[in-house]
Amino acid sequence: MDSKEKKPLEKVCMICAKGALEDVYAALVMANGAVMEGIETHLFFTFFGLDAITKKTMNSLHTATTGNPAMRMPGGLPFPTILGGLPGVEAAVSSMMRKQMEDLDMPPVDEFLELITAGGGKVYACKLAVDMFKLRKEDLWDDVDGILTIGEFYELCDGDRTQIIFT
């Protein structure tokens, strides 16, 4: 038997626990990419990641302008931390970043989730985090497939060609 036989990935289960723009998009790009490759995809949002599937916040996510050493000015100069803390700066930088992403054909969060679910990907909210943030089902994006306990999430992760990815 050929020992180099390819064993393609059959399922990915992703966990997005952070609500910053870049953390959420990392999860969305990987999830959508998996769906497009024909891989069964489950995307589980917990803690601050819930912002990405909460109607009120999903399309206005921010990137951190303080405590983010990779933050640069548009010309490439360092971004002074003290500037990042000024009122309105984070919102302005984040909206600029969203615009640059749009220019690269990266859709807003709700549309990105639609791409994923159109291809059969599933989107879930974490029950513990939903309770903690006192959210109700109607606060969440309409096409969320369910509010799951972590045990139920692990049940979805069966199969020997399954990977769990934490972003």
Binding site: N32, E37, G38, D105, P107, E114, L115, A118, G119
Partner: peptide, 21 residues
Amino acid sequence: IRSVGKSGVVDVKGLYKLFPK
């Protein structure tokens, strides 16, 4: 996939239906 889905020729769901996986 986004630009094709917005082309007016087919939507994303339709594209997955025509070319599964």
